[in-house]
Design a protein around this nucleic acid. Structure first.
Lengths: 347, 347
DNA sequence: CTGAAAGCGCTAACAG
DNA sequence: CTGTTAGCGCTTTCAG
C-alpha cells in the first residue's frame, strides 16, 4: 500500500497542516488558527468554510507546533506513590475528568514512595513541558523543591493538610482523622492498642496518622510502646506479618489500628490464620475506605478519605492558577469515620 | 534568593535555550544539539564545554521545539478500561518501566469499557503526538480502527489472543484459560455450574472467557442455561447481586465461575450473607489473580494473568516498531490456573 | 474581521 | 568534527 512508487510520496503521506486548511478554505493561516482557538473573532461564514476544510482534510493540530508557538502544552502532570492503591487511582480519575473539560491531558507518573524517584519524575514531567503539577504529600527532596521553585510551575499538593506546607494544598487532616478513629477505638473500651503504620520516612501522611493516634492515646493516659508500633510497606502480606508479630506478644493488643485498608486486610488475614476472632477477640481498623474494606470479612471500620473531592478540586485549582496566574488558596476537605464490624467492644 | 534585583529580569526569567548554551560554550547550536543527542559525534573537549554550559545555565530542552523539529514526542500512549483494577495498573507499571529505559514517557487514559470513549481518547492521544499506542482488546469502533490505520501509528493490542486480531498483539488465550479453569471445576465433580460475566458487549476478553467455559461444559454434555449466566459490571457490589440471584434459584449452582476476581469477591460476599458455605456448599472461582484474591476468605482459585509480561513486552515491541519501522510479531503469553480454597469438591 | 510576517526552540542536511 | 542554514506547524502582533 505505502510503496515508494509515486512521485510525490510526501504530499499524500504527511498529515495536513494549518496551511493546507487555509489554502483549501481560501483564507490565511491566521484566520484558520483563530477559527479554531477563538471562533467568536471570526465571521460565521468564514468560520464555516474553515470548519468544512478541516473536516475534509481530516486536519488535526500538530502538537509540537502548538506547544512551541503558544508555550503551553495543555498537559498537567501528576505523580502518585503507586497505581496499585485504588484510592490514588480514583483521585486521578476525578482529576482527569475535571481536566478534560478544559481540554487538558493528564500525564501520570509513579514514585513508589521514593523521594529520589519523585524528583526524577518531576524533572521528567517538567522537561515534557507540563503546564502544572499535582503531587502527593508535603515532603520531597530539597532539589525537587528548588526545581519547582525556580521553574515557577504551578503545582498543588494533595493528601496533606494545608497546615503541613506553605504551598497550595488540597487535602485533609490525617492527624485529626486518625485521632477520631482512635477515639472510637477507645470508646469501645480498648486499652491495649497497637498500630501498624506504613513506612514513616518521607511520608507526612503516615507520620500525621501516627501522631494522631499517639496524641489521643496520651490524652487517656495510654501510650504506644515501642513494641506496639509496627512499621511496614503498604502491602497485604506485610500487614499480615506485622499483625502476626503483634498478636504473638505476651500481652497481645485487643485492637490494631492500621495505616490503611490494605494493611488492615493483612491484619485480618493474620487473625484468621492464628484463630483470633475479629471483632470478638481483636478489633482492626483501616484508613481510606477503598472497595477492599468491604470485600474482606469482617468489613473494616475505617476513615473515608475525600479522594474524588481532592482530584476534582486539584483540577479546578490548577486550571485556575495556570489561566489566571494567581496562586490559589489551599483547601481542607473533610473525612468521615465509618463504623463497621471489624471494630467492636472489648470483651 | 531569586530577587528581582538584577537589571535584566528577562534574562533570568526565560528559561535558557539551545542558543544560550551555544553562546556560553562558544560553539554552534548544532554542536550543542549533537552533544546532547549523539555525544559520540562530538569531540570530548567540546562536549565537556557544552555540558558545563548546560549545567551552568540549568538548561532543559524545550519540549515543543524538540517535538516540532524531530517530529517525535518520545511519548507513547496507553488506553486502559479502568485504573481501578489493579491488574491494568500493574501492566502499566511494567510498561512504564520498560519505556523509561528508552527515555520515553507513558501517557495514560481510561475508556471505562466504552468504545466511544476509547475512540475519543485515541484521538486525543494522537493529537498529542504520541509516537505509539498500547490498547486493550481487539474490539473498537470502526472510526477508531480507521484513524489508527490512516495515521499509521504503531500500536499494539494487549490482553487478547493474537488470533483475535490482525494487528500486532501481546496477550493470552482468554478462552483456553477459561476452559482450563472450567475443567478444574468439572474435575471436582461439579455439574450445576453458573457464570457471572462482565459486560460482554465490545469486550472480546469477556466473550472469550465465556466461550471457553461454554465449550468445556459442552464437551461434558453440560450447558450454560440462560438463567445460569449473569452479566454485570465489574464491581464487587454487582457481583454480589448477581451471585445472590444465582443462589436464589430453585436449583442453585454448586459452582460459580466469575469473569474476574472482583466479581468473585462479590460472589463470596453474597454467599456469606446468605449463609452459604464456601467451598462446602458452593465453589467460586475468579480470574486475574490480583491481591484481592488472597485478601478475601476463602482465598480465590483463579487464573494468573501475565500482566507484567504483557506490559514489558508491549514496551519493547513498541519501541522496536517506532525505531525500526518494522511491524513486530504478535506474542501469546502463558496463563496459569491457581488452585485455592474457594474451589472444592462438590459435596 | 482578515492577512502578512515574524518568530517560538530545535534538528538535520549540507558544506566545510 | 563543527558551523550554516533551512525549515518543522502554529500563534500572534501589527496593519489594513
Amino acid at each position: 500500500m505505502t510503496g515508494p512508487a509515486t512521485g510525490k510520496p510526501d504530499r499524500s503521506r504527511r498529515p495536513p497542516t494549518l496551511e493546507d486548511v487555509a489554502r483549501a478554505a481560501g483564507v490565511s493561516t491566521a484566520t484558520v488558527s483563530r477559527s479554531l482557538n477563538a471562533p467568536e473573532r471570526v465571521r460565521a461564514e468564514t468560520r464555516m468554510a474553515v470548519e468544512a476544510a478541516v473536516r475534509d482534510l481530516g486536519y488535526t493540530p500538530n502538537f509540537g507546533g502548538q506547544a512551541l508557538a503558544s508555550n503551553r502544552t495543555n498537559t498537567i502532570g501528576a505523580i502518585i506513590p503507586t497505581m496499585e492503591n485504588a484510592i490514588f487511582a480514583r483521585a486521578l480519575q476525578a482529576l482527569q475528568e475535571t481536566l478534560t473539560e478544559s481540554r487538558v491531558t493528564l500525564l501520570v507518573a509513579t514514585s513508589h514512595y521514593d523521594p529520589a524517584r519523585e524528583e526524577a519524575q518531576i524533572r521528567a514531567l517538567i522537561a515534557r513541558g507540563v503546564d502544572g503539577l499535582a503531587l502527593i504529600g508535603s515532603q520531597r527532596t530539597a532539589a525537587a523543591d528548588a526545581l519547582l521553585e525556580t521553574r515557577g510551575i504551578p503545582f498543588v499538593i494533595l493528601w496533606s493538610a494545608p497546615s503541613e506546607t506553605p504551598h497550595p494544598a488540597i487535602g485533609f487532616d490525617n492527624a485529626r482523622a486518625a485521632a477520631e478513629l482512635t477515639a472510637q477505638v477507645l470508646a469501645r473500651g480498648h486499652r491495649r492498642i497497637a498500630m501498624i503504620s506504613g513506612p514513616l520516612a518521607h511520608n507526612d501522611r503516615a507520620q500525621a496518622r501516627l501522631a494522631g493516634v499517639r496524641e489521643t492515646l496520651c490524652a487517656t493516659g495510654l501510650e504506644l510502646a515501642p513494641g506496639d508500633l509496627q512499621e511496614c510497606p503498604y502491602t497485604l502480606a506485610d500487614g499480615e506479618v506485622a499483625a502476626a508479630a503483634l498478636l504473638g506478644r505476651a500481652e497481645p493488643p485487643t485492637a490494631i489500628i492500621c495505616g490503611n485498608d490494605v494493611l488492615a486486610a493483612g491484619a485480618l488475614r493474620a487473625a484468621r490464620r492464628l484463630g483470633v476472632d475479629v471483632p470478638g477477640a481483636l478489633s482492626v481498623t483501616g484508613f481510606d475506605d477503598i472497595e477492599l474494606a468491604t470485600a474482606v470479612h469482617p468489613p473494616l471500620a475505617t476513615i473515608r478519605v475525600p479522594h474524588r473531592g481532592m482530584g476534582e478540586a486539584a483540577g479546578a485549582c490548577l486550571m485556575d492558577w495556570i489561566d489566571s496566574g494567581r496562586r490559589p488558596v489551599s483547601r481542607l476537605l473533610p473525612t468521615e469515620f465509618v463504623a463497621r464490624e471489624s471494630l467492636g467492644p472489648v470483651e
